[in-house]
Each structure stands twice: as structure tokens, then as C-alpha cells.
Design a protein around this nucleic acid. Structure first.
Length: 418
RNA sequence: GGAGAGGUUCCCGAGUGGCUAAAGGGGGCAGACUGUAAAUCUGCUGGUUAUACCUUCGAAGGUUCGAAUCCUUCUCUCUCCA
């Protein structure tokens, strides 16, 4: 098998391939241009979206040329694959602004530089709005539409859920558009391979068929395992909602903590998928007698480094050590922690605990804070708060002149005095 | 166009005039147990200047001492027929 493909397989990416032998041979022979699509349905990608892009990273290093396709056009339609609900329609403005921020985020794992290092593939980013938005309906139907069999489309597994609940024509068209994307990329960029999540299988195969019919050319598809946590929860979801890459939506500290707390069974798998550590190095964490917490810390650090950079990763790691490490680890390492500044005068007068907690991420409202106190999970410094009416004043400042709030055992929030 | 079913709190889903801030489950938060894990058990889970008050059951009106529950109009979804 081709080395790059072998890498993906060894790291646990691959689910299915349309023709593994032929693709392998092609990749041995030449640099293959390949693409992954990402729909800009939100302001930020979350980690569940990233699997194909990590795969893209590995293929690029092996000298193949990635195309990251932002679906500025298809996002206007909505992919019904594997979904049970109709997706909310986005305005053109929302789509455009989402595209812009997503471009930036993909840069963390894929090298889009003009002149990549020797041996590394050249990556580009395209937006299918460029060729989709001005399509002429009649022309499109005559050129593309005639190659699609409705009978066949209806048998696709990916539509099954929707056929039970209703599928509107606009969404039914999604597959044609995605196929047309592949065709366009083949024609204009010589793209021979589409990779994507397992839910994209139907759409990918449809694109390959279209290219075969219109261009008499053979292209390939490769899908990846949909990443689920061992507890069955969807990847990328957390207590706080989706684990976004945007630091505004999901702070680097929380991001680090998310990975730090993955299930035991998931650690090795995630190290392979979501970090660039060599398989040999990852193997050392599988050995007998290795503390699994070290593996989790490594996973959290590496992943945070990739997405948010070394600096943020160090800060998050230091903050985590300070909070969860030995008691003497020091209180200096709070940098990565979320914080709030309050006026000194305010603190002199005293702030009701409930109000203070409600102003942090620890509680959303006063009522929420009250629940926390009543449940015995509210801490100010080393003091457990049991009275909802308690006032927090200067006497609670610790030796560095700050207040450390805590909800439960793991959630900390730093109060700084201005 | 015609007929029917339906829109309930984060999600699913009970609820057909007062005892309903609304059963149950999921999810989430907290407590116990731990390893910053999982599983398990317990409590909580609309808001507020909090033993009371305010806002919620697609939207707007109406009936009533009192409505998520009844009536009217509107709106959206689904199913069947043409």
C-alpha cells in the first residue's frame, strides 16, 4: 500500500475507499490533488470537523496537493445526509463571514503557504460559491441533472432518515451540487480524490460517477470513521456545547481541559488522530505501567498547541498543573485561566456571592449561582460558601491579591482587582 | 386546491379548565466514590431585590373568578387525496 495511505490507515482514519488498489497505485506514481469540503454553517469549526483536515495534513506532508473547499455555495442549501432535521437557512452575509473565519482556522493544520517546503504538497483554499452561485438552472439540469437517477438517489442510506421525516427539493439537490464541485475541481485543478467523513460516502460516490460519465475519467473517494467518543457521545460536543476552535467561543484553557478529560479508552485513538506525534511515540503511552493521565496531558497539550499555538498550550498546561497538581504547585500559574476584573472599591463595599458567581462563567444567573451554593459546590479560595447571602469583600483576597472562585472540583475562575 | 394530524420548558415526550413552573426520560450542574477518567448512587435543573412575585406551553385576540388545556384568526410542519 502507498505510504501516505498506510499512515492514514495506521492512525485509524480510514473507513472506506472506492478503490484502494488503484488509488494506492496512483499515489505511488504521482502527486495527487485531493479535496475536502467544509460547510460554513457556523462562525467557527469545532473539533468534530477537523478529522478530514488532520488527514489532509498527513497527505500534504507526503507530497500530495490539498484543496480545502469552503462551501460558500452549498451552505446556502444544506446537506441532508445523515440528518433528521431540516437545517436552518443561512443568509448570504452569514455564509460569507463564516467562510472568512473558517479559512483562518484551517491554517492551523494545513500549510497554505505559497512556497511550501520541498516534498510538501501545495495547498489551496477555494470557495464553491465562485462557480455555484451563478449557475444557470436550465444549463445545469441539462448538463448535470440528466446524469442523476432519482431512483438511485432514493436508495442512498444517507437520505433514509430524511425520507421518513420529509425532505425538501432544495436539500435533495445537495448531492448534485457536491458532485458538480468534484467535477469542477477535476476539470480545473486535476483533482482526483475526495476525502471526507463517513456520512459523505453517498455524495462522494455520486461525484465520482458524474466524472466518469461526463469525462470518462476515474476518480477516487476515501472516507474516515466518524469520530465518536467511547461513551457514544458525539465528538466535539461537551457540557458547554460544541468544542469550537475559536478562542472567543471556547477558551484555550477549557479546550485543554476538554482533551485532558477524555475517556480512558479514547486516549490512544485520539493521539493518533488529533496529534502529529509519531506512532512510535504514541506506542510508548500504551505500554504496561504507564500512567494514563500522562497520555491525557500529552494529548491535551499537543492538541492545544496545534490549534491555539505553543504559548496558549503552555499557559493552559501551567494553569492546569497549578489547579490540579500538588498543592504546592504554586498560585502563580493562573495565566491560562479565565478571569474577571473588578474594581477595588466594589470589593471594599462587598459583593454578594451570588452576584459575583453570576458574573463569571461559573454560573449563568443568580438563580444558577444559588443552586451551586445550595448544592455545596461553591468555593471562594479555600472557603466553602454555604450561605447564599454571604458577601465577598477584601478579606477574601489571597496572598497575591486575587480571589479564586471555584465551582465543583474542576471549574475555576480568577477574580483580579483593578 | 381538499381532508386530517400536530407545534409543550436545552432535546425527546406526558399533560384536554383550578392540586401545573408543567409527569417521565435524555442532557447538564452539584454531592458521594475516584485518577482532573468511566460506571454507579443522591440532589438540583425558567427568572428575580425569593417562604413571595414575574415570565413561559407556535403568534395574536376572545370566553372564564381561573386557560398549556375551550373559541376565533393567523402561522409553520407532517400525512393522505387531487
Amino acid at each position: 500500500m502507498n505510504k501516505a495511505l498506510k499512515t492514514l490507515q495506521d492512525r485509524g482514519f480510514i473507513k472506506e475507499c472506492t478503490n484502494m488498489d488503484a488509488l494506492s497505485a496512483l499515489m505511488d506514481k504521482e502527486s495527487v490533488t485531493f479535496y475536502v469540503g467544509a460547510d460554513p454553517t457556523g462562525k467557527s469549526l469545532h473539533i468534530g470537523h477537523m478529522v478530514p483536515f488532520f488527514a489532509m495534513h498527513h497527505l500534504q506532508l507526503a507530497g500530495h496537493n490539498p484543496i480545502a473547499l469552503v462551501g460558500g455555495g452549498t451552505a446556502m442549501i444544506g446537506d441532508p445526509s445523515g440528518k433528521t432535521e431540516v437545517r436552518k437557512m443561512l443568509t448570504p452575509e452569514e455564509v460569507a463571514s463564516n467562510c472568512a473565519s473558517i479559512k483562518e482556522q484551517l491554517g492551523t493544520v494545513v500549510d497554505f503557504s505559497e512556497t511550501p517546503p520541498a516534498g510538501v504538497g501545495k495547498a489551496v483554499m477555494l470557495n464553491n460559491a465562485d462557480w455555484l452561485t451563478n449557475l444557470n438552472y436550465i444549463d445545469f439540469l441539462r448538463e448535470i441533472g440528466r446524469h442523476f437517477s432519482v431512483n438511485r438517489m432514493l436508495t442512498f442510506e444517507s437520505y433514509k432518515a430524511r425520507l421518513e421525516r420529509g425532505l425538501s427539493f432544495i436539500e435533495f439537490n445537495y448531492q448534485l451540487l457536491q458532485s458538480y464541485d468534484f467535477l469542477t475541481l477535476y476539470r480545473e485543478h486535476g483533482c482526483r480524490l475526495q476525502i471526507g467523513g463517513d456520512d459523505q460516502w453517498g455524495n462522494i460516490v455520486a461525484g465520482i460517477d458524474l466524472i466518469r460519465k461526463t469525462e470518462s475519467a476515474e476518480c477516487y473517494g476515501l472516507t474516515f470513521n466518524l469520530i465518536a467518543r467511547s461513551d457514544g457521545q458525539k465528538m466535539g460536543k461537551s457540557e458547554k456545547g460544541a468544542v469550537f476552535l475559536d478562542p472567543e467561543l471556547y477558551t484555550p484553557y477549557d479546550f485543554y481541559q476538554y482533551w485532558r478529560n477524555v475517556n480512558d479508552e479514547d486516549v490512544i485513538r485520539f493521539l493518533k488522530l488529533f496529534t502529529f506525534l509519531s506512532l512510535e511515540e504514541i506506542a510508548t503511552y500504551e505500554q504496561e505501567g504507564v500512567n494514563i493521565n500522562d497520555a491525557k496531558a500529552r494529548l491535551a497539550y499537543e492538541q492545544t498547541k496545534i490549534i491555539h499555538g505553543v504559548e496558549e498550550a503552555e499557559k493552559a498546561k501551567a494553569a492546569a498543573l497549578a489547579m490540579f497538581g500538588s498543592a504546592s504547585a504554586g498560585i502563580e500559574n493562573r495565566e491560562g485561566m479565565n478571569f474577571l476584573e473588578v474594581e477595588r472599591s466594589e470589593l471594599e463595599a462587598g459583593i454578594p456571592v451570588l452576584t459575583l458567581f453570576a458574573r463569571t462563567d461559573l454560573a449563568s444567573t443568580n438563580s444558577d449561582a444559588r443552586r451551586l451554593v445550595n448544592g455545596g459546590g461553591a468555593w471562594v479560595g479555600e472557603t466553602k460558601i454555604t450561605d447564599p447571602k454571604a458577601m465577598i469583600d477584601l478579606s477574601y483576597l489571597d496572598e497575591v491579591g486575587e480571589i479564586l472562585l471555584r465551582a465543583g472540583k474542576k471549574r475555576y475562575f480568577r477574580i483580579m482587582v483593578r
